[in-house]
Design a protein around this nucleic acid. Structure first.
Lengths: 193, 193
DNA sequence: TACTCTAGAGAACGATCGTTCTCGGCGCCA
DNA sequence: TGGCGCCGAGAACGATCGTTCTCTAGAGTA
């Protein structure tokens, strides 16, 4: 096993265990056992636990947004459909086994006040998602796509946390309905005539 | 200092420290030092840390909803004003120094997968808030007040987490605007004529 | 074959955690 | 006054954490 494979295995294992049970509930030795990477190599790849945590969050951010973007590309034709497809994907995610809310919100609540790295990773993730949604909203003919994106972001985060705590993915459907209303009722310039 | 005052001091201190830094980051000895209650009495009042955590969450739930309800009673005349006043209060809270998001979402992310008590307290809190908002929505003349309440709940939780992570209370204002749209555009039965 | 280098297994270390125990002192009632 | 009981201060305990160190075995090279 070379350095890159060890690193990849560690990130995979960290993502699974940290998300499942929280960062502080998973020790380095359990990570070693679950990943099959020796403690020595673990500390060669990540000199401290906090660097592993930040690596976990950064990779999860990339994967999460890539999966969302893929789904939207495959299932949305019009600009409005693409925005609503976001909530289809959210619903599927919230209904998936092992769903436990947003990894970034969870980590922020656990460590955000102590670790600048975790707080920054959460901020960066939310900002990136906002930019993605804002890009989707730009394709609508609404007056203020950025304002609409802000509102949709609230529905997204609200649906994720509500689904996690209640255990019911229906929150994503409620968010979808609300998003449809906000999109439909958003102020529009009159069609250029 | 009698038993009740010790208990009250402990809950006050726990609420401040747990909310500020997370549950696992605060040790029992620090709680003793900050509250001025001896360790012996601490364990007489709360036989284990997890019971103190649940006590903290339960009392925070009561106080949080009482403060919200007070504000709504004082600042909302019509049913719609009362619903929008919820978001005024949220904005003030998100802008207050020391704001760090929703104590229940934070605790759920940190301990929800390990502690049934924490997960249950978070569920109960969210359910109680939902009922409160649903009661407010009942006073509107909309077809489905419960569905509207579900949507507004998403905006509330979304605003809290977004404001916490971004550090910008403007999220509560965005939520208020979206709430206004959802209330205005909600399907209504025709006025009984 | 002998030497060197590296990696893995796991012990070890110091810190900290939740929880319990010990000890000394103060109030209370006869 | 003297014995009793409760209290706070803090030591102690066992567990666990993140991190480092030791030891041994095997691969590669002359």
């Amino acid at each position: 096993m070379d350095h890159d494979e060890a690193r990849s295995r560690l990130l995979d294992t960290a993502e699974r265990l940290f998300y499942e049970r929280g960062v502080q509930a998973v020790g380095m030795d359990e990570l070693r056992a679950a990943s099959g990477v020796s403690l020595k190599r673990l500390y060669q790849c990540f000199p401290s636990k906090s660097e592993l945590v930040e690596g976990y969050l950064r990779r999860r951010d990339e994967r999460w947004r890539a999966a969302l973007s893929d789904h939207v590309d495959r299932h949305g034709a019009t600009a409005q459909d693409r925005l609503l497809a976001v909530f289809d994907w959210l619903h599927a995610w919230c209904a998936a086994p092992g769903f436990r809310g947003c990894a970034f919100i969870n980590s922020f609540g656990e460590l955000g006040s102590v670790s600048d790295g975790v707080a920054g990773a959460a901020r960066d993730h939310k900002r990136a998602v906002r930019e993605y949604v804002a890009d989707l909203a730009d394709d609508l003919r609404v007056d203020d796509p950025a304002a609409l994106a802000d509102q949709l972001l609230l529905l997204i985060d609200g649906a994720i946390t509500t689904a996690a705590i209640s255990g019911d993915p229906a929150a994503a459907r409620h968010a979808q309905v609300a998003a449809g209303t906000l999109i439909t009722c958003a102020p529009r310039r009159p069609a250029t005539a």
